[in-house]
Amino acid sequence: MTRPDLSDADARAAYRSELRGIARAPRMLGLIFVFASLGLWAWPQNGGPLVLGPLPTETWGWICLGIGWAVLLWVIVARTRHNKERLGGPDA
């Protein structure tokens, strides 16, 4: 990959836009899981009208939170690797 020209404001804006596009769908999926966990915690502890199996809703909220943060952590690693490769750092 070629090193981006960061001396120009327009080129910096284009590179920021490129970085925002890296792993966009998984990032949104991770955020959906995190917000779904908040919804599951706010749900009545009996499960309400939604049947989620033998586990209480709070447990499903913790599971969703763990999945969401795992996905978001993967996105952070993917964006960092892309940035290192693109800038051609010493560990690239």
Rank of each mutant, 00 (worst) to 15 (best):
M1N: 10
T2P: 15
R3P: 01
P4V: 03
L6D: 09
S7Q: 12
D8S: 14
D8M: 06
A9G: 05
A9N: 11
A9S: 14
D10L: 13
D10P: 03
R12T: 06
R12P: 07
A13T: 11
A13M: 11
A14L: 14
Y15N: 02
R16K: 13
R16Y: 04
S17D: 15
S17M: 09
E18M: 09
R20E: 13
G21C: 11
G21H: 13
G21N: 14
G21R: 15
I22S: 11
R24A: 15
R24E: 11
R24S: 12
A25F: 10
P26D: 08
P26M: 05
R27G: 07
R27E: 13
R27C: 08
R27H: 10
M28N: 10
M28P: 00
L29S: 05
L31I: 03
I32M: 13
F33R: 10
F35Y: 10
F35T: 15
F35S: 15
A36R: 00
A36K: 00
S37T: 00
L38R: 13
G39S: 14
G39Q: 09
L40W: 00
W41V: 02
W41A: 01
W41R: 10
W43I: 00
P44T: 00
P44W: 03
Q45S: 15
Q45R: 14
Q45Y: 11
N46R: 11
G47N: 12
G47K: 08
G48N: 08
G48M: 07
V51L: 10
V51D: 14
L52Y: 02
G53E: 05
G53Y: 04
P54K: 12
P54V: 02
L55R: 05
P56M: 00
T57W: 01
T57I: 06
E58A: 11
T59I: 13
W60V: 04
G61K: 01
W62S: 10
I63R: 04
C64R: 01
L65S: 06
G66I: 00
G66F: 03
I67G: 06
G68F: 01
W69Q: 08
A70V: 00
A70Q: 04
V71F: 06
V71Y: 03
V71M: 10
V71I: 15
L72G: 03
L72S: 04
L72T: 05
L73W: 06
W74C: 07
V75G: 03
V75E: 01
V75R: 04
I76T: 14
V77D: 09
A78K: 15
R79G: 07
H82M: 05
H82A: 08
H82G: 05
H82P: 05
H82Y: 15
N83V: 01
K84E: 07
R86H: 05
R86F: 00
R86S: 05
L87N: 08
G88Y: 06
G89V: 12
P90D: 08
P90G: 08
P90Q: 08
D91Y: 12
D91H: 14
D91E: 14
D91G: 11
A92L: 07
